[in-house]
Amino acid sequence: MDFIKQLKVFVRPDSKVCVDNNIFRICTKLTFMILGIMVVLVSSKQFFGEPIHCIVDEIPQKIIDSYCWFYSTYTLSNRMIGISGRDMLQPGVSSDSAGFNDTVKYHSYYQWVCFTLLFQAFCSYLPYYIWKSFENGRIKALSEELKQPFLEDEAKTKRKAALIFYVKENLNNHSYYAYRFYLCELLNCAIAIGQIYLTNLFLGGAFLNYGIDVMRQDAAEPMTRIFPKMTKCVFHKYGPSGSVQKFDGLCVLPVNVLNEKIYLFLWFWFFFISVLSILAVVYRALICSLPKLRYKLLRTRARLASPRDIQYILIRFNVGDWFMLYQLSKNIDALTFKEICRELSTELYSNNFTLK
């Protein structure tokens, strides 16, 4: 629980500076936190005890538990439907496996669930980490102290002058900065969609329709088929005369009670963030191609600024400059940003400034 508490930093918004957007944080930081919590739950024995319990006569309990955990268990696919206790012991478990070798389904994924979820968590966080490395505190340095509504006039004047000077000197040179964020959004979309196919591959092709099957049918049937609670395990050892003896055991997998709920939630979550990330990419493409949309978005952020000042600025700005200014608008007090827009529009059209 102490580890889970530490994960709250990944969803807590940064009060000092904002260099991304809500969708980007949901798909990266929030997803990382959710997967991190699931890793803790799966690897914890506090709620579900040992992940596997097997029953085999004459074999010590710890040995058979470890063996069946390492070397996988199995169920019989054609014994999933029927009445427990009459047609089979439990869904997929029958005392007679003769003639059903072609329907044997082995289950070994459960020993890798923790590591797979951890890998997926780091994949989700990767675009955010890359963007933070690229951004390298630029917006924080430019907007320092300007977020405060009550700032001494002398200090405010110096900070505004420094910001305007930076914008003039680097006009039309922010494309690389903006496109790196756009590429991180595209990477975020690719990872969100890739999470679905990675999980589907991990679960043997049973994940793509998992949520639909659970909603369409009795929830117990698809969950039991993919995450059986009872399975079989065969253990071989040498007998007193040196002959090989076969022991047919039953195994209970308490961990699958948790796994089935985790992957049901992940089915909805991965499709949700995939749709969000696709919409974010489409939205970004519209921004790059529609100057009027960029104007409206900046007007929304700079509510106090004059529309004429915004128009003057955007005539001189390209997409990269717009992105940089839009990021600054998130981190500067509205009244101060209004003054910056007015002074910047004046500077851009003054006789002392020549466009590069």
Rank of each mutant, 00 (worst) to 15 (best):
M88G: 02
F317G: 03
L258Q: 08
K5S: 05
L187E: 10
K158D: 05
S345L: 04
D87G: 03
V19E: 00
Y182N: 08
M80W: 02
L325D: 01
F122Y: 12
Q195I: 06
A334K: 10
C123P: 04
C114K: 12
D248V: 10
I164Y: 04
I278H: 13
F70N: 09
S243D: 13
Q311E: 14
F227V: 04
Y177S: 07
V11S: 09
G242S: 08
K261F: 13
Q217P: 01
I64C: 00
P240R: 15
P127E: 07
S243M: 15
N200Y: 12
K261Q: 13
W69S: 01
S95G: 08
V40Y: 03
K292P: 01
D57N: 14
E135G: 03
R138F: 11
A334S: 13
W69T: 01
F24W: 02
T157L: 10
G239P: 02
S77F: 11
V244L: 13
A219V: 13
L151E: 06
Y177M: 12
E50L: 09
F337N: 04
L253C: 08
K8C: 04
S43G: 08
C233D: 03
L344H: 02
K158W: 09
T157E: 07
S241T: 15
L304F: 14
K356R: 15
S108F: 12
F115C: 07
L314K: 05
